[in-house]
Amino acid sequence: MRVLLVEDDRMIGAAVTEALKGAAYAVDWVQDGELAIEAARSETYEIVLLDLGLPLVDGLDVLKSLRTGATRVPVIVLTARDALGDRIRGLDLGADDYLVKPFEIGELLARMRAVMRREGSGASPILSNGKLHLNPSTREASYLGDRAVLSAREFALLQALLSRPGTILSRSELERHIYGWSEEVESNAVEFIIHAVRKKLGAMAIRNVRGVGWMVDRSS
């Protein structure tokens, strides 16, 4: 899952980026409002984490820009502005949630999962096609009786596939869900991760469509 983090504080930005990577998110981190608007226009994100006190363009103006676009990306505001009026304004402008600094990473991750569940029309937090099951809160996967806890990148890859059962995802599409801008991608990284998942869950957990990409079966 790809996340846009908009945060001008270098210490907070670096800490949140590392925590998100450890939780299996691909993170693109920008530090001013102009870059945030440009990134949102050029890339597709599953969620945006948005500070308000930004250089060049204020966070609330970034939020307005996001809400005037064609896409409806979920936005969680992360800010030190704790006044009731600021929270009300942010929510009225279209923020999906509002988290006041300082915050615990565990709470941020839980709020991200909750927002994504709402975007999925209240679906269960467990992703499943009937045979393959994936728990985002524990990173545990199971397939026909085999169970395993996945690494961050194994989880990110399987989450991308299981979010769209029956859809073939190419190498570049899978890389997009696994790696952020600043991360170097090795040429055989996707194959290596898929091999690791199959070793844990069985060879049929992920299907290869030769010359096209990979998929998991449609829901049964």
Rank of each mutant, 00 (worst) to 15 (best):
D97G: 04
T71Y: 14
K64V: 03
R87L: 07
I12A: 13
E38A: 14
L56G: 00
L54Q: 11
E18N: 07
D58E: 09
S42M: 03
L66F: 14
L66G: 13
A95S: 09
L91C: 12
S65D: 09
V48N: 08
I47L: 13
V62S: 05
V73T: 15
V73I: 15
R72V: 12
A23M: 00
I76V: 04
L52T: 02
A70K: 15
G22K: 01
A23R: 10
K64M: 06
L20Y: 02
V30D: 02
K64F: 03
L49R: 01
G85D: 12
L93E: 15
D82P: 02
L52I: 08
R87H: 04
V75K: 14
A70Q: 15
S65M: 07
G69F: 11
A36C: 07
G33F: 10
A23Q: 01
E38M: 09
D97F: 03
A40Y: 14
D96L: 01
V77S: 07
G69D: 15
G69A: 15
L63C: 06
R72L: 13
L91E: 13
E34N: 06
V16E: 00
L93A: 08
A40F: 14
L54W: 10
I47P: 09
T79F: 00
V57R: 08
V75Q: 08
A39H: 02
L63M: 04
L60G: 06
S42P: 00
T17P: 01
L91P: 14
V57A: 02
D96G: 08
A95L: 03
A70D: 14
D96C: 02
V75N: 11
A15W: 03
R87V: 14
W29R: 03
A80M: 00
V57L: 07
L49H: 03
D92V: 15
A24M: 01
L91W: 07
A23P: 03
L49N: 04
R41L: 12
D97W: 01
T17H: 08
P55S: 09
Y45M: 10
E38L: 11
G69V: 11
A15F: 06
A83G: 08
R67N: 13
I12T: 13
L60T: 11
A80Y: 01
V48A: 08
V16A: 02
L78A: 01
D86S: 08
R81Y: 02
G33S: 07
P74I: 10
A39S: 08
A39K: 04
L63T: 06
V48C: 10
Q31M: 06
V73L: 12
R67H: 12
L63H: 03
K64H: 09
T44R: 15
L66I: 05
T68D: 13
D51H: 00
D96A: 07
L56Y: 07
R81G: 00
G59V: 01
L60I: 12
R72E: 11
R89P: 09
G53T: 05
E43A: 08
D28R: 06
D82S: 13
G59E: 02
A15C: 03
